[in-house]
Nucleic acid binder design. Structure first.
Lengths: 225, 225
DNA sequence: TTTCAAATTGACCTTATAGTCATTCTGACA
DNA sequence: TGTCAGAATGACTATAAGGTCAATTTGAAA
């Protein structure tokens, strides 16, 4: 009887395995983004993915492990979405305003994504941390340039995060729509210390920047049902 | 054998009953205000109260029913704490700033109370609604007086709530202390549309108002361990 | 067509929590 | 001091969720 090539054999299942793993991740995204909070359980995820419960544990140690991976994906997507525009804007406050505008537009356009983001910010500290790191950089620059009225950069970061998270939560429940975005961005800038007129100007500039970098939205938001 | 007076008999246990009920409510407060989020379960509450599980169900239909009652108590306490100062301030934005200052000072002084408030705002929508009703009144007045840069009163309310909730959460984890309060109040006022200088003036005025109404703090915050 | 390592399955176990109820305890009154 | 309605108890059931594993299915290679 002919010998079986074990290494070859070991590679056979990889495609199938990868497909199942992706299905579980995708189902988890859908669960976390569901309109009424489906409690994110292993049973719910596996049922949504159409696989048996045991299969879950072949691919992830437990639910937190899956959440961590999902979080990394979200961070990568956010980064890919925001960095190009951020790199193109020199003034730190306008840069921050541009990123906030793009982010809020995406969230307004995709409530499911907004729900996912809102929950990720609460449940996945790493996602929040990664976003805040960039924000902290911008605000530290602003402080160095004498543009920041808030005493500590850390507090300024918290203020921006609070406003964006609130907006995200309002988008996710459709209590506001995209037309409120400039109002929110102006409020963020004013909170940072911009005089009202200056805040309005920067918000307009941020909107133009966001227009210029508006391509590829679907690549990010199209994934979630 | 002498007859027993049944109506009289029915009233016998009332004091005992009321004491047990109060103990359960108090234990629930402690659970919700615990440093690391003790999951609020019937078992946890009854154990903290030193009563058997069945006793809980003699006094409350279920956990949501207890939470609703706890929420009403919190609303009443907040109202008692904030209304006197609010009634004394004429300008709506300064009134709002005064209320925010008093609230944040209380929360800074009592982390357990801050934790309770932070969780109540998320878990007990009625508490949040009641507070927001007052806030909405102030901000509607401000809009009528042309003091509001935010387009909709509703959005303005959300912005203030977001900032106060973020602050509450930071107090509850001791990531900021009371010295940050003026910074936060100024940021709130600026977000509403006050020019930076005006925001600073109103914040100072609010601090003086808060000083004047600083009595009785212990009556509110002393309850929670 | 047969083989077999890997992938998958789902019944089963464990733990945590909600909620019930027959039984026991308590204490003011007769 | 004995009575007994009401208060309290805690063992009990039911359910939901995490996690395991012996048995079954899959599919490329032989």
């Amino acid at each position: 009887m002919a010998r079986v090539n074990l290494e070859r054999r070991a590679a056979i299942g990889e495609a199938k395995r990868a497909r199942t793993r992706a299905a579980i991740l995708e189902a988890a995204r859908a669960c976390y983004a569901a309109p009424e909070p489906v409690s994110a359980t292993v049973d719910a995820v596996t049922q949504a993915a159409g696989v048996a419960k045991g299969t879950f544990y072949l691919h992830f140690r437990d639910l937190p492990a899956l959440e961590a991976e999902l979080g990394e994906t979200l961070i990568a997507e956010l980064s890919e979405r925001l960095e190009p525009a951020r790199l193109a804007v020199v003034n730190p406050l306008t840069r921050m305003a541009t990123a906030v505008t793009i982010l809020l537009r995406d969230l307004a356009a995709a409530p499911a994504q907004a729900r996912l983001a809102a929950r990720a910010a609460v449940m996945l500290p790493d996602v929040a941390k990664a976003v805040q790191a960039r924000l902290r950089g911008d605000l530290a620059d602003a402080q160095a340039a004498g543009l920041l009225a808030v005493g500590s950069v850390d507090l300024a970061v918290r203020i921006v995060v609070a406003l964006v998270e609130q907006a995200s939560s309002l988008f996710s429940t459709s209590r506001i729509d995209a037309t409120a975005i400039p109002d929110i961005v102006r409020a963020v800038l004013r909170a940072m210390g911009c005089p009202p007129g200056d805040a309005a100007n920067r918000t307009n500039e941020a909107a133009l920047n966001a227009d210029a970098f508006a391509q590829r939205t679907s690549a990010v938001t199209g994934v979630v049902s």
